[in-house]
Design a binder for these strands. Structure first.
Lengths: 340, 340
DNA sequence: TCACACCGTGGAACCGCTTCCACAGGACAT
DNA sequence: ATGTCCTGTGGAAGCGGTTCCACGGTGTGA
């Protein structure tokens, strides 16, 4: 691989001049520029990114710290990231988090510009101390699906989303509505499900419908867990007529459980989820759609802007819209279902 | 951020000695080592990866070049990559390919050790010239779902897989079997579907069943495309009684089409796919399972081995097993279906 | 004509690390 | 006592760029 010195020698100029041509500096005469470019072409020269990085103090890299990056919603968000990154001069580095140790590992070492030019923290609340260190180190950060002081973020209003889902069910006449939230022992401390629960309770209260606490459950996103919860709910003396699951993957588990018990969705049980992952459209799941793709895309754009402009952009919380997508897993309360 | 020189000064030693401590060189006395380590701890020093990379000539990075990395099967493979990479001192860089231009872009610039220490080329046949350049440049490469001379790869026997799927249908009594292959105009030139077609034709020939060419179709992996093909097949005067789709995503489109026409799977049409993506288990799709996760995992291990040992490992084609997973979308040929 | 500004350029310093080379000093054999 | 070997160490060179500084040459104004 040719070096800048060889190019310089061949073009009969100094290394500095080659660098200037490379970086489109205006202070190079046309004739010199042409000579240098010819030399570059002849030698097939491409600058060493490591050397550039060392010299410039950055590394043409965008880091995405994301839990379980192969699960449906992170994947959708990453699609957006990749789309926004297309053509940009940055490599996409994925830091896959599957435990607190992972998270701390990454967050502990990413507080420097030579590790990543910018950071996208996705779907988990970063420990304030870590975040502060990273920001102080001058690494631009954008949060997705999380908020923190002093950092831009892309979010949805999960409380409103919880309300929307619940109101949809209430509007269909349901009153015995079960709720399935996230795993309370989740070590990474996801909070969206909690906010959605808040919205659920608000909507119920506003409608004057009491929440039956025996219908409020929590579980991980593993399908079997949702299946088990749903089976248990349906076997109760007074089963719910509808379920609001705070994640589509859970809602799909619920549907599976209903079927395995020989019951039908939505006749025996209405099911609404949250996210609108790709699978949901296929299955016909009614859900609260959040713009996953767009969240990744927007966050990446914000980050790229922060990298491009030398002026620090204003910190802002970007809120993306939610929307109930009615498909075929919710329907009116069955005649006999629950109290009138 | 502290530099190695500051650490050296604080410990009262030379920079070289600090570097030796950092790299666990045996030729440092215990007392010196302790002093240096103390200085490192006090300053919270961590070496600059860019500088290390420049000096050592590599960059602690593993590149994965993969088409449509957010679609189901690449995602499964990437899960395996991430799993194998856990704990390894390498960052995972994703090069998402969605066009020939992308591919050529990446392959054109990745032929140097300072871009990526090792490369995983996933699910597309790399142009021989590009591959040769990369290998010549001394960048270790492992292919997944593709083969090429002089490079290790992880594959399945697609011809055998095509045969297995077809034999499963033949065994159920089907004779009018439709085949849905990949898009022949796919610019990236995927070949697995072609091999599966070969297996399909072999199995049909072996069984003495003639292939009705009007039942052989090709299309992209977009769901609507498979839906359209399936509808067209079913509207024929003599519709097939079974379909072998060379990808699960296509098979799912077929099922959707059958349903939308008011017919039933498998009573009216048996459907078998290929891959066994996560969704398939959920839907109950019968399919030829290929170990996607394992393919990524194994390939990554091979690559890491190649990076660790200074001795070049032997080139080898690793063949992973295939298996027909019978679920609920295939059944016996209906009484009236096709010629006896 | 001279002073001054400015443009384009070469070259050195620097980014932060690794590694090679040279060398001091102690252990050992002669 | 002298020579040899070995161990541990400091320091310089090098990795391949960017950027700053100095300088020669040309153009402009007085």
């Amino acid at each position: 691989m040719a070096t800048i010195a060889e190019v310089a020698a061949r073009a009969g100029v100094g290394a500095g001049t080659v660098s200037r041509v490379l970086n489109h500096s205006p202070k190079v005469s046309e004739t010199t520029r042409a000579r240098v470019q010819a030399a570059i072409a002849e030698l097939g020269y491409r600058p060493n990114p490591l050397a550039q990085g060392l010299s410039r103090g950055r590394c043409r890299t965008l880091g995405v710290v994301v839990p379980y990056f192969t699960t449906p919603s992170p994947v959708e968000r990453l699609r957006g990231v990749a789309a926004a990154l297309d053509g940009a001069q940055h490599d996409l580095v994925i830091f896959n988090v599957e435990s607190v140790a992972h998270r701390d590992d990454f967050l502990g070492t990413l507080d420097r510009r030579d590790r990543a030019d910018g950071l996208l923290l996705m779907s988990f609340p970063p420990p304030p101390a870590d975040l502060a260190r990273i920001v102080t180190a001058g690494v631009p950060v954008v949060l997705v699906d999380a908020v923190a002081e002093g950092v831009s973020s892309v979010v949805v209003d999960d409380v409103a989303g919880g309300r929307m889902a619940t109101e949809h069910l209430l509007g269909l006449g349901h009153e015995r509505i079960a709720f399935i939230g996230g795993d309370p022992d989740e070590p990474l401390g996801f909070t969206s499900a909690d906010d959605r629960e808040l919205g659920f309770r608000q909507a119920m209260a506003d409608a004057g419908v009491e929440v039956d606490e025996s219908l409020v459950r929590y579980g991980t996103h593993a399908r079997e867990v949702a299946v088990a919860i749903a089976k248990d709910l349906l076997r109760q003396a007074a089963p719910p007529t509808a379920v609001f699951a705070t994640a589509d993957v859970q809602a799909l588990g619920v549907i599976e459980a209903v079927r395995s018990l020989g019951r039908h969705v939505p006749d025996d049980l209405s099911v609404i989820g949250f996210d609108d992952i790709e699978l949901s459209a296929y299955v016909g799941l009614t859900t609260v759609r959040q713009p996953l793709f767009e969240s990744g895309q927007l966050a990446t754009r914000l980050l790229l802007e922060a990298l491009a402009g030398d002026t620090t952009p204003t910190v802002h919380v970007h809120e993306l819209p939610l929307e109930v997508v009615v498909r075929s897993t919710t329907g009116p309360r069955p005649p006999g279902g629950g109290p009138t």
